[in-house]
């Protein structure tokens, strides 16, 4: 099973979809499995509920608790297990989550205020109705990289980026993830772009004035 780390891109995909306030899977993941340039496929878990009930750790635990219904030996499921198998999916090694508060309700769930919590995983799990991970004796038996805490830190990662990123989120429990993906608040773009635009405005005006010193404005 691969060691899992946070991915900013995946959290942005999760954020973009959470903002739609819909309790259903992101259709883009199906239409275009390469929504994230670095991964061939992206998987997704969604939790929705009222804001008072929301807690990232609890939401993820809810998914993991599906383990009760899953039978590894027979690879069978008694009710819903897909969230659990995605969380522990052996070849998924990147995760990005985001939560969004929907004051106007969540389509397909509630008309009252609700929170949509989305986690995107890459590469996607739940493929070909296979088992989520191999159980072949010792941990990391099929690992070509280093083995830390019984998790494989493989070096196979897209675009040459190291699979072992400094942001630590152990496999199956990305609970260190901030609930709102607040690494990068979206108003930050605005706070950068607009003042830059103002600066550009002054520079352009100054350059034009320099180029045309005789410029004149009628009142």
């Amino acid at each position: 099973m691969l060691y899992m780390t946070w991915d900013e891109g995946l959290s942005l995909i999760a954020k973009a979809w959470a903002e739609h306030c819909m309790f259903q899977h992101n259709p883009k993941l199906k239409d275009d499995p390469s929504v994230h340039p670095a991964f061939s496929s992206v998987g997704e878990n969604i939790w929705t509920g009222s804001p008072s009930l929301f807690d990232a750790t609890r939401a993820i635990k809810k998914w993991v608790d599906e383990k009760e219904d899953y039978d590894y030996q027979g690879n069978k499921c008694n009710s819903v297990c897909g969230h659990y198998t995605q969380v522990v999916w052996g070849s998924s090694y990147k995760v990005g989550c985001a939560a969004h508060l929907c004051p106007g309700g969540v389509a397909g769930f509630t008309s009252k205020e609700g929170v949509v919590f989305v986690c995107n995983y890459a590469t996607a799990g739940n493929m070909d109705s296979a088992r989520p991970y191999e159980s072949g004796g010792a941990a990391c038996s099929g690992c070509s990289g280093s083995c830390v805490d019984r998790l494989c830190r493989d070096n196979r990662s897209p675009a040459g980026a190291p699979a072992v990123a400094p942001a630590v989120a152990p496999a199956g429990a990305p609970t260190g993830a901030p609930a709102s993906a607040s690494h990068y608040p979206d108003y930050l773009n605005i706070l950068i772009v607009r003042p830059m635009g103002l600066l550009l405005t002054f520079i352009t005006a100054f350059a034009l004035h320099y180029r045309y010193p005789d410029v004149f404005c009628y009142e």
Binding site: V193, L198, L200, T201, F202, A205, L208, H209, V215
Partner: peptide
């Protein structure tokens, strides 16, 4: 120091697109 009408026009152009 600045030619304000030009500043104003450039600012308007940027703000419109933005």
């Amino acid at each position: 120091f600045f030619f304000w009408p030009l500043v104003d026009v450039c600012n308007s152009v940027f703000a419109v697109v933005y």
